[in-house]
């Protein structure tokens, strides 16, 4: 068996799943984190496709700028509490008070 085939199969599965999860996420913050993860996996995908240049660009943009940009934007969004009342924010509040 081609040793790359197993890796590629896992890679494609993970890539598609992360992409779907990031798109379908109702929680914006979770979507952002999934998008950061998507960039990492996509970079490996470019590597397997034999395009290290694109992988390098994806690494630099995805890890260095896009993630920070999305997180900073999320922090400025108004009305995040209405987005999804429940598990996420209570946990944050509790942890924040513990500090």
């Amino acid at each position: 068996m081609n040793p790359g085939l197993l890796f590629d199969a896992v890679l494609v599965t993970v890539l598609l799943w992360v992409a779907w999860a990031a798109l379908a996420s109702r929680d914006l913050f979770r979507g952002i984190v999934l998008f950061i993860a998507f960039g990492l996996v996509l970079s490996m995908g470019w590597v397997r496709l034999g395009a290290p240049d694109v992988a390098l660009a994806e690494a630099a943009i995805g890890a260095g700028i896009a993630g920070a940009l999305l997180l900073a934007t999320w922090a400025r969004l108004p009305g995040k509490t209405e987005e999804r009342p429940g598990d996420d924010l209570e946990g944050q509040e509790r942890d924040h008070e513990q500090r």
Binding site: F29, V47, A60, G64, G67, W74, H96
Partner: peptide, 30 residues
């Protein structure tokens, strides 16, 4: 590909810093 790994190693922390500075330090941003 080691260069790609190098760039990831250098820049992986940027998102974490953005999170701590912009999201976490404001009480989860809410």
């Amino acid at each position: 590909l080691r260069d790609v790994a190098l760039v990831f190693g250098l820049l992986a922390a940027v998102a974490a810093v953005a999170f701590v500075q912009r999201v976490w330090s404001r009480g989860g941003g809410h």
